[in-house]
Design a protein around this nucleic acid. Sequence first.
DNA 1: CGCCAGGCCTGCACGC
DNA 2: TGCGTGCAGGCCTGGC
Length: 271
Amino acid sequence: MPELPEVETTRRGLLPHVEGKLIKAAVVRSRALRLPVPRNLARTLAGSTVRNIGRRGKYLLFDCGHGTLIIHLGMSGRLWLVNATVQPQRHDHFDLVMASGKIMRLRDPRRFGLIVWQRGDALAHPLLRDIGPEPLEADFDGAWLYRNTRKRSGAIKNVLMDSHLVAGIGNIYANETLFSAGIHPGTQAQRIGLARYQVLADEIRATLTRAIAAGGSSLRDYVGSDGQAGNFQKNFKVYDRAGAACFRCAAPLRMLRQGQRSTFYCARCQK
DNA sequence: CGCCAGGCCTGCACGC
DNA sequence: TGCGTGCAGGCCTGGC
């Protein structure tokens, strides 16, 4: 589930129940995530107060003052709030038990997510240190994309998903924003000019902003009760729509493999 | 059964 | 030589 908008939606949903709140305890049920969960994490967290929840790309940053709890949801991870009476199920690897009685619970069937602890500056962590600008911050724009792709011979679709160029663009939003910008996913990144990168950067900003706003509408269900996305609207224009009619020109959308990921596009609208 | 899935790090080969 | 870059592999489980 988690693309950047879902991670941001999760962050906002957790905020009122976690930020400024005292941690009573933490429970680690499985240490075997993409990286091993630190052994003494429960002891480190107990008695701390979460000062705020930040986000860098798709990493959530729980600032505890003396260090930061960094959580990534991987492919299948989900964080939500439960009451103490809700029994953990299979794949519920981690609980943050707040003094209020609320529990922030991590469920991650595929275990591609991770939980690490960083003392001091969280952004100095090796996982975060070299990540590119946030797509919704002011330092990200078409000029940045243009400047940093002059030697990139790879396909723009793959280059866009490189978190060192720009943070948090996954497979879905790479597909969606290239369609919106009218750029063929196979185009070599270095052959795209400044003007087209400006269109692309604007589309990235607009698409993510809209998706976060839409995520917000299903937020209460998502974070508050059973963690299910419910009737979360997936009005993707191209993603997972191979063979279906392009919303813009009605031509059938196509699919191809780039890297080991599926790409969806319109051969008529994207050049 | 085989194949696919919203991520992303690592290691290797290659070219400048 | 030392990089930046491109690409495949791998971590897991579940659903079709």
